[in-house]
Design a protein around this nucleic acid. Structure first.
Lengths: 144, 144
DNA sequence: GTGGTTACGTGCATAGTTGCAATCATTGCA
DNA sequence: TGCAATGATTGCAACTATGCACGTAACCAC
């Protein structure tokens, strides 16, 4: 659990650095679009567990901020197609790479012997988690 | 990083379950009081990085919700003493124990051989993090 | 005591999130 | 063509968070 605290701290810190530019729900939208590719609004709303009307307005703000691109979907003009702008990509990337750096900074302080055993154990842990229904393990896409 | 995603997902899920009752900033206040014992308002505000006036109102809501107890500090009547009510304790405990359960559920799925190596590696990881200035590693008390 | 400092609280303003109901455009089916 | 279903948006209303300026009560040093 203390390791989990550390990791959560890293994530929180990485988000805090961009909180001036985007709120947490907004960032979640960006991450979802970044990870799942061009999406429509309903998908975003459902994935985040909010009312579609809220998703609309959150996307509004991201479009205004120049982080998200909203256009009509080619196949069905009722839907919209959401993609990250270059700025949006950079923002998401900056958060992710900072997380990596922070974790690596910690790993670098571990004694070499244990450091080598860590990846295998963690990979195994992640695999084990993959075998559990997503409802039980949580919203994995939450903010990463 | 995938292991980190899993752990963060667990934390996010555990918080999502109480988000109907308390907001994220509110929960952070509860956790801070739970971990650092009776506190005054300034400490809470500074620890959360918000303006003291906001801390006042956040605490207001928690008191109204019956999760927090606010009374004059015995030593200095300018200050207040914040403690968790029984309800508040239960809420924090429920989140923490759910996290533990979720992690253990994952660990239980790991093969026995690797399972034994995990705790040592993670403990070492956490220790390594402890050696890094808090500004670099993040606000560890964030929500845990 | 008097004055400065400290710790909280209040009023005010702004912005973001949330849900619900209603509306509009598009699509697909009869 | 006409009508229902779908996807998105808008108006409305409430709540939370946030900072700033100001006020009040208590403490401390002189």
């Amino acid at each position: 659990m203390s390791a989990a605290r550390v990791l959560v701290g890293v994530v929180a810190q990485s988000i805090a650095k961009v909180e001036d530019r985007v709120s947490l729900p907004q960032f979640r939208v960006l991450v979802m679009v970044a990870t799942k590719g061009p999406s429509n609004l309903s998908a975003v709303a459902e994935s985040l567990g909010v009312h579609p009307s809220n998703a609309t307005r959150t996307v509004d703000r991201l479009v205004t901020a120049g982080l998200l691109d909203r256009r009509d979907a080619p196949t069905d003009r009722r839907q919209v197609s959401l993609t990250l702008t270059e700025q949006g990509k950079q923002l998401v990337d900056s958060v992710f790479s900072e997380r990596r750096a922070a974790v690596q900074q910690v790993v670098a302080k571990m004694p070499r012997s244990k450091r080598q055993k860590l990846p295998a154990a963690l990979e195994c842990f992640a695999e084990a988690a993959g075998e559990i229904p997503e409802d039980d393990i949580g919203h994995l896409e939450w903010n990463n």
